[in-house]
Amino acid sequence: MTTDYLLLLLSAVFVNNIVMVKILGLCPFMGVSKKLEAAVGMGAATTFVLTLASGSSYLINRYLLGPDLAYLTTLSFIVVIAGIVQFTEMVIQKTSPELYQTLGIYLPLITTNCAVLGVPLLNVQEKHNFMQSLVFGAGSALGFTLVMVLFAGLRERMEGADVPGIFKGSAIAMVTAGLMSLSFMGFSGLIK
């Protein structure tokens, strides 16, 4: 039982990484990865939102909507996610104004982060129960944070690297993201 959850968590972090393998949530991945501190903050905010969103969207889908109102799934998930992001924004503005300033527009944009909508929808599709939904949500968010931190570290190093003129800035970042995605494919044999 515990191993099942551990496997689900590991597979969400590494094997089915939300950014590198499912290619969801690329907007903050490219946008907030210029500074390591900002990337860590973004990862923490997304982890909070994503875990809450997967839990509450499971409850809504199971008890409020049911099979009769299944056509409302996407609509109600978007509403719930928007609410949770608003809540997170208020908490961060109160507790850490520096992080609020650093994240800037990307904080409210968590609402439209497709990873945050994608994970609850995947939960519905895979027929996860409540605990599985929570674990899958938290795992995906941890995977997102891991990739953000790794990528931000790479980009900070690339600032000082000798990059050919035409590849400077976003171009070399895209190439790096592609190579990282390739390397994450290497995890696919991790869980049989």
């Binding site: 809504i60 409020l64 909507l65 109102l69 409302l72 609509l75 109600s76 509403v79 719930v80 609410g83 608003q86 809540f87 208020m90 908490v91 503005q93 109160k94 104004p97």
Partner: peptide
């Protein structure tokens, strides 16, 4: 169903706006 979601979220956000006022 949508009304229930909206009312719950509204209540939570309204509470948070007072609790985390800056």
């Amino acid at each position: 169903a949508m009304g229930a979601i909206a009312i719950t979220l509204g209540a939570v956000l309204g509470f948070a706006a007072i609790r985390f006022r800056v």
